[in-house]
Design a protein around this nucleic acid. Structure first.
Ligand code: MN
Ligand code: MN
Ligand code: ZN
Ligand code: ZN
Lengths: 136, 136
DNA sequence: TATTATTTTGCAACATTATTGCAAATTTAA
DNA sequence: TTAAATTTGCAATAATGTTGCAAAATAATA
């Protein structure tokens, strides 16, 4: 599915900036931060537009967010079945300390965890740090 | 162990700001962000000092960092056995969507996960979102 | 296709958050 | 008590994020 199809699928107007951001994600191997995207756009679009685009994509379920410990949330494309408020990205994320690239390990499902009595569980995120296959 | 003892244990000078920040952590139930701490200090110490204090504490293994998806890294006190570069905080973190408090579930160990061939694993972080015991 | 309605964009202005250098103050070592 | 080492606060600066609004682009309608 190409960029334009994705936008239409999620009922978004097809615009230049949205297409560009989508294409950047599709080319990138791993997850990207706001500033990663900004720099790859090489000034073609405004910073504010990028903020709004990422927010829209996340809300629609086109991209999902990956928490980090360095004040720079990462974003990555979702697989098919994410929709409006409902993401299903229960895979593990891997941050390589060598190449600094964060990847979605789509095939690695986040293991279940048993919480103490009284806790109700909604969503789980798991971030593994280490050395990736390429950098080994 | 009181604040002063902790600082001495980790071979840090005992200063006013460090003691205050430590005490804030000890009183707080859950994890705190930079701005949480800043506001609790009520202007008694400079923002910059808080940044440097948190960084020092994290490096020494007095506090550990909890990733979030809203550009506001959280910090929480480590248990006994963390040292200089080596943290051992392999417990699950729980973010309650009601009270917005993030807590360390010290008794819940992060489950092991099997990565694809070629990946070497260092550290794992797991953040569960839901409704906590108190808010149920 | 031409016109209109709706949405999106870029800019400017502003707000918040984070980093750095350096002198003064504090803490520790002698 | 004094000297050395560390830490702090301030100022300046940078980086990041938000909002309002008019112009531009897109989508819907005739
Ligand atoms: Mn992912
Ligand atoms: Mn913890
Ligand atoms: Zn790597
Ligand atoms: Zn709660």
């Amino acid at each position: 599915m190409n960029a334009q199809d994705i936008l239409k699928k999620y009922q978004l107007s097809v615009t230049d900036s949205r297409l560009s951001v989508l294409q950047i994600f599709m080319q990138a191997g791993g997850a990207l931060s706001h500033s990663d995207i900004e720099s790859r756009l090489k000034g073609f679009h405004d910073r504010v537009t990028v903020y709004r685009t990422l927010q829209t994509f996340a809300e629609k379920g086109i991209i999902h967010q990956i928490p980090t410990i360095d004040n720079a949330v990462l974003y990555a494309l979702c697989k098919e079945d994410c929709t409006d408020g409902h993401h299903h990205d229960n895979h593990v994320h891997f941050l390589c300390t060598e190449c600094e690239i964060t990847t979605c390990l789509d095939e690695v499902v986040v293991p279940v965890v048993k919480l103490p009595r009284g806790f109700r569980q909604n969503d789980v995120k798991m971030i593994v740090t280490g050395v990736c296959k390429s950098c080994k």
